[in-house]
Each structure stands twice: as C-alpha cells, then as structure tokens.
C-alpha cells in the first residue's frame, strides 16, 4: 500500500479548502497525518532494538533495504498503555530521515475540509500538544492531526 504517489492538489491544513489525511489509531485514539508527509504504510516488520537509545526509539526496520528508525508513539505521547502485539508502520520522511511511526491500527485515508478544522485546545496534554497541528471535527471520533515536521524537530532537539 503506497500512498506516496497520491498527489493532493488541495491546500494544507492552515489554508481553507480540503486536505487528505492518513489516519491511524494509537491507544484507541484517532490520529491523522497529511498524506503528503507519509511515504507508505506497511505491515508489522521484524525490528532490531537499539540498546541505550531513548525509550520511544523502538528499533530499526528493514524497509526493502533501507533502514528506517521506528518511533513508538505510545512512548512519545506519554501514553502508558503499551501493547505487546505487533504494530503497523506509518513510514514518513522526517527531516531527511526515514522514520516509522508505530501505530496500533490503520484507519482510512480521509478527505477533510477546512470548515471542520479547529486549532488545538489549550487543555490538551503538552506531551501530545507539541506534535499536533490541529483537530478535525468529523462525525465519529475527533481526528488529532500530527505534524511529522514537529516530530522531526522534537527528535533532533532531544538527541
């Protein structure tokens, strides 16, 4: 399932119009990432652990010969609930690095309109807030939008 070639002509989140988001679940909550930031979504892959690395750096995976670094969103978002089952890989290019965001489940690609957009409410836990660029009020669960650039910035400042 490769989403990289889906070219979205619509404007970005901060501009009125519609945008497409690749959605996924972490600890039962629904998150979305702009499809243009996602390279592809792949099934669980064997992982090589990196001893001494930060707890949210879960390991390295072999993506057709490319080495991707797997980031545990549970750990990154400070969600204590940790699942033992295998996690899906949302592959993004963050700041030149190939990164896999580990999610419990993959949702649909959603086309969301700017009229549904809200900035991040002030009450959101800063642990997650620092990665969010907004919220979409869709029917059903709210979609928290994760900005992979913000994740990349966090990773490079933390290490």
């Amino acid at each position: 399932m490769s989403l990289a070639l889906v070219k979205d002509t619509g404007p970005r989140v901060d501009v009125p119009g519609t945008a497409q988001f690749s959605t996924f679940f972490v600890a039962g909550r629904l998150y979305g990432i702009d499809v243009r930031q996602v390279q592809e979504v792949v099934k669980p892959l064997p992982m090589t652990q990196i001893p001494l690395a930060q707890p949210y750096i879960r390991g390295l995976i072999n993506l057709r010969g490319q080495v991707a670094t797997a980031i545990g969103l549970h750990q990154l978002f400070g969600l204590t609930q940790s699942t033992s089952r295998e996690l899906m890989n949302v592959i993004c290019r963050c700041d030149g690095n190939l990164v896999s965001l580990l999610a419990d489940d993959i949702g649909d690609v959603m086309e969301l309109s700017a009229s549904q957009y809200e900035p991040v409410p002030a009450t959101i836990d800063p642990l997650i807030r620092r990665f969010m660029s907004g919220v979409y009020k869709v029917s059903g669960p709210l979609v928290s939008i994760i900005d992979s650039d913000k994740v990349a910035r966090f990773l490079s400042t933390q290490n």
Partner: peptide, 22 residues
Amino acid sequence: LSNFLKSLNTYAGATVLGDGSI
C-alpha cells in the same frame, strides 16, 4: 543512522545482513 541517533556514540551505523535483518 538517523540524525537523531547520532548522539549514541556507541554505534557507527547499521547494516542489512544476508537474512534481511538489521
């Protein structure tokens, strides 16, 4: 390795082994 792993001075890089593991 990814830029954000460079601070781990114990590793120089990663390699894909013959069986596909890293």
